[in-house]
Design a protein around this nucleic acid. Sequence first.
DNA 1: TAGTGGTCTAGACCACAAC
DNA 2: TTGTGGTCTAGACCACTAA
Lengths: 260, 260
Amino acid sequence: MTIDLAAVDKADERPPYRQIAAALREAIRRGKLGPGDKLPSESELVDHYGVARMTARQAIQDLKAEGLVVAEHGRGVFVRSVPVVRRLASERFARRHRDRGKAAFSMEAEKVGYTPGVDRLSVTEAPATSEVAERLGLAVGDAVVIRDRRYLANGEPVETAVSYIPADLARGTAIVESDTGPGGIYARLEDAGYTLGHFVEEVAARMPTPDERRALQLSTGVPVMSVVRTAYDTTGRAVEVCDTVKAAHAYVLEYDFPAR
Amino acid sequence: MTIDLAAVDKADERPPYRQIAAALREAIRRGKLGPGDKLPSESELVDHYGVARMTARQAIQDLKAEGLVVAEHGRGVFVRSVPVVRRLASERFARRHRDRGKAAFSMEAEKVGYTPGVDRLSVTEAPATSEVAERLGLAVGDAVVIRDRRYLANGEPVETAVSYIPADLARGTAIVESDTGPGGIYARLEDAGYTLGHFVEEVAARMPTPDERRALQLSTGVPVMSVVRTAYDTTGRAVEVCDTVKAAHAYVLEYDFPAR
DNA sequence: TAGTGGTCTAGACCACAAC
DNA sequence: TTGTGGTCTAGACCACTAA
């Protein structure tokens, strides 16, 4: 290995595995190991530091949990590539884009040069859960139409989204069809006479559940952002709740708001 | 242990440690183990499943990385308590609050019944980095005043914040003092004639660096939210950049924006 | 086939918490 | 003192990747 890694220091109060992790972290920080570069293999670390393999593995485990590196079975451990950042302006739900037939996700993706895609689409009707009912101003158990789908950028899954629309608003419109038509759900709601007034987004971050890790093909150490958006019409009625889970490394959310 | 955990199934294609992790996860999901409850100890898992201790530990490692449980040395492993959620409205920078002498953080904290606090405050002057210079519309190396502090809720650190203000705006004002006075930095900027027009926030999520883990006293499996806010005056000039790192489990950010 | 990471065993000693 | 998790050793076999 070309990078120089000091030996384990017995005077150092940190346990050996942390010292090894720190040395690797430092090599990455200094650029001696750049994005995509391969770390020393476990056996190389064992030889270099004179530790057991489990000790070397634990150092690498630390870096994985930090999201700094990713392991590829049979190939090695690699410095995570710098993610391509995508910016989602608060402008993304602008009516003028709907008028041009663009849904929010397609617009964003194309703006940064990705090919957008959707799969695993399902449309069902079910009773509202308490969380959804509260946001929509319904009673628990009232019927809602549920649109569940996964968004792709260049074929890679980056976001899952579940929309809940009061069934009485959605029935008889293209909202219950697979293809909602140009401009998506929001355009159909406006067609039906519910002019959109404003949106509220609640943003949180956490580690993914195993299901979410599978759906978004996330490696260890990548958190998700949960964004729950409620859409209101100009009368203040909530007309849609959209619960999205995004692979955090693929997103930067941007919000612009006035000083009042 | 009172909870029932099935034995490891050799027919199951998942490795034993994942089966054990899944059984514990399921017990938590079903409420057999509630927030704050103690998981079976490592030796209990070893006895129950007939595996080596490292195998039981790996199962627990999975749950820690998920943020589901936290280990306490010498006491046991516990289901993470449900975090108290705090909502930060887009309203938080409303002028009427500044007029009443409240800074944004104090307002939020008090609204949800926390005692706010600030520590590790430092005020320095230094050349702007490229990231800060770009957002402030300065040249790299132009002088900026840097206010670095850590916010506490009930004595627990929940957020670090670093503000950058063009030095020519800050010099001679209370912005360079430890105590910026009622209403904080934004009130002083308005005193100096820079009426605030709007804010832009960029929100991202990732795993913390070791430094951030220390500063926010984060246990493993807790991501951070990075929020970079740029404040503009009514002429469109950027007057401050504030780079915050928040413990993700303590925050839900709320944004309200119009459909345009 | 050789090298890599993934999983596992059966021990060991240590630091910390609680009784 | 007992039980807990934290760290470590020195092996083993397996699955995956690439030559």
